[in-house]
Nucleic acid binder design. Structure first.
Lengths: 167, 167
DNA sequence: CCATACTAGTTTCATTTGCAACTATTTTCA
DNA sequence: TGAAAATAGTTGCAAATGAAACTAGTATGG
């Protein structure tokens, strides 16, 4: 059984970070995130997390903080603090659930909240369009599908890995 | 050439974060990063930045800190601190350039540095393979190409945007 | 040559983050 | 019932981060 000693081609000794998918993905994602972050930072003084909360509440009013956490895979504490800031700034309002007073449903305020949402959405869309301008719609479709499959694979791997170390 | 307007309604009121590319990209990238981070955190007590420094030095020995920054698009301060830690732990050695004493070239130490690199590489490769197991090689090819084009687009957008605010 | 500007890398300090522990409320089931 | 477990959300604190200032060394132009 040909052990890996010096055989002509078992494994190339090279490892090229630039061609390592997790790295590439991270670089692309960071570049895009940074670009889009401009939109809501510069113009509305919002962090990425704050914007995401607004976006998800714009679409699904009345979610609670933990439902937002579920949906967006963001950290619980980060969401709690961002919600606090958005409440203080008057972008959100909070309604305590009648029968279960632990639950506090969140909504965009009519004045500031919805207005901000409405102002950012077209800019975000425009950014996305510009980003994808070089791709045909078939390519966009393919990209989304491949990303989705990658995501599923990553989740599956994570689940299997975890069992090995703790819990 | 049928522009994408086509509908009588100007803009749908909906905005769905889950179908917004920058968001999707970020979620996939975070999931993958977290998964791969296990490999070097659990087994070698390295952060992502530390691992990247090792990886890039494994491939290109003798780079200076600022060359690493250039190549990996990581923060200057973060690299400085990670290098410091790797030197302390004996994974790197530093050679001051003869004629320009500001430059300090970095290399993996034979003992710990190269050994660690050699230990991580196969695991990293294995992770990447598992991640891509569900895709055909043509699909992988396509994915890489599309990511690359996205990256370029994002960089271009960034450059154009910046001009608006400062510099 | 020497004042100024530039480059490499580090440190300081003020925030930001993230884990764990906490409060408050509701559910479970003995 | 009511004590223990579960759930929602917050807070404290220590560590990670990042911008700007700083040290050290080199290049340049008058």
């Amino acid at each position: 059984m040909n052990m890996n000693k010096k055989s002509p081609l078992t494994k190339p000794a090279h490892f090229d970070l630039e061609h390592f998918l997790p790295y590439q993905l991270s670089v692309v994602s960071n570049t895009v995130s940074q670009g889009i972050a401009h939109i809501y930072q510069q113009n509305h003084d919002l962090t990425v997390i704050e914007w995401r909360i607004i976006a998800v509440l714009g679409r699904y009013p009345g979610l609670t903080a933990s439902q937002i956490v579920e949906r967006t895979v963001m950290d619980k504490v980060a969401v709690s603090r961002a919600v606090k800031r958005l409440l203080e700034r008057g972008l959100l309002k909070r309604i305590t659930h009648g029968s279960d007073r632990r639950r506090r449903h969140l909504e965009l305020t009519d004045e500031t909240g919805k207005k901000t949402f409405a102002a950012i959405v077209p800019r975000a869309r425009k950014y996305e369009q510009a980003l994808l301008a070089g791709l045909s719609s078939a390519e966009v479709q393919t990209l989304l599908e491949l990303l989705d499959r990658l995501h599923l694979a990553a989740i599956t791997l994570e689940e299997n890995t975890e069992s090995g170390s703790e819990h």
